[in-house]
Amino acid sequence: MKSVLDHLQSLGQKGTGVFERLGRANILFARILAGVPGLFLRPNLVIQQVYSVGVLSLLIILVSGLFVGMVLGLQGYNTLVDFGAEESLGVVVALSLVRELGPVVTALLFAGRAGSALTAEIGLMKATEQLSAMEMMAIDPIRRVLTPRFLAGFISMPLLAAIFSAVGIMGGYFVGVGLLGVDDGAYWSQMQDKVDLYDDIYNGVIKSIVFGIIVTWIAVFEGYDATPTSEGVSRATTRTVVHSSLAVLAMDFILTALMFGGG
């Protein structure tokens, strides 16, 4: 009997633990946002972080974008050619990338490359008392450390997603037009005709902004909330990648349903 109660109790504790963390994450989010206006006076802090969060993620985004585009070109061609519709390859590649794969794959790569680095960096700063030392120097670590990193993620993610889609479209072009003989003019003109600025591109940009916020928020929260030991930081880093990937995929479904679903 006792063990059943014990299980129930630990279940309850875990449940309240989840909500407690959610609450802390929300409070932290509010405090991060409160620090944003102050950064207009010190743009250098953000620019530095855009470099380490965004520019240093460029290589992985470029390479992945190229290959994803090439695979799309190949797969799309094989399906379309059966219907004699291979001239629509440009549309298929562009829509897949701009609406879905660009924002989602970029966000997943971003979580693995930049999100984990952010968590580890902030977690280690906490473990080595650098954050405490800042507090004792009357410098708010949230404003000085977390807000610039959050803002950098918010700025970098849509740009990276756009670069991913652009490179992917080029990858599709190399395979479709270069190797498989799709008509050059048809590839571009059909794309120009069918890809809509509002319905497709803007929606894709909105997705990538939302994903950027989610991934960076989870990354800085996990780092700031990490248990200040080496094991704690490693767990937090893992949680960042797992939670932000899941959140991105779930959020993608919700956003897609809102943007393209039903109507």
Binding site: T128, E129, Q130, S132, A133, E135, M136, M137
Partner: peptide, 12 residues
């Protein structure tokens, strides 16, 4: 706190 200094154990 601007008028308080603190030296952490490993410097921080």
């Amino acid at each position: 706190r601007k008028r308080m200094g603190m030296l952490f154990q490993n410097g921080a």
